[in-house]
Amino acid sequence: MTATVELLTCFIAMGLLALSYFSHHRAVRNRPLTDAQARGFRTAGTATLVLCYWLASRHYGPAYASVLLLGWVCLSSIILVILLSYKPRWLQPILPASTVVCLLGLLY
């Protein structure tokens, strides 16, 4: 369960970073991206990535967590690339749903 929550956190982080780019944001949300929004997505994405590393470090130790995080970034990005290329709109419900699952996982 812990690993799933950590992987989902990484996926959310990379999803937020993807949304900070104009072309991806337009494809997902069908509306333009303001500079403030882009900064917000970037900050939120970076913070979530740091949170993911912190969670993994607590579980596996910092060295193992570093390698694991790079693997998760790779996996999350591959999923995002596929989604953004073929079904970009799907990301709109997937990201909030992942956040809910992640929060539930963290709470219980």
Partner: peptide, 27 residues
């Protein structure tokens, strides 16, 4: 980082090459 434009010939191959290189670059 997240770009892949399918069905565009050499452009798609370039995207596939870049995406597969960059996504796992540290590895």
């Amino acid at each position: 980082f997240f770009s892949f434009r399918p069905g565009k010939g050499p452009r798609s191959w370039l995207d596939a090459h870049v995406a597969s290189s960059v996504l796992a670059l540290p590895f």
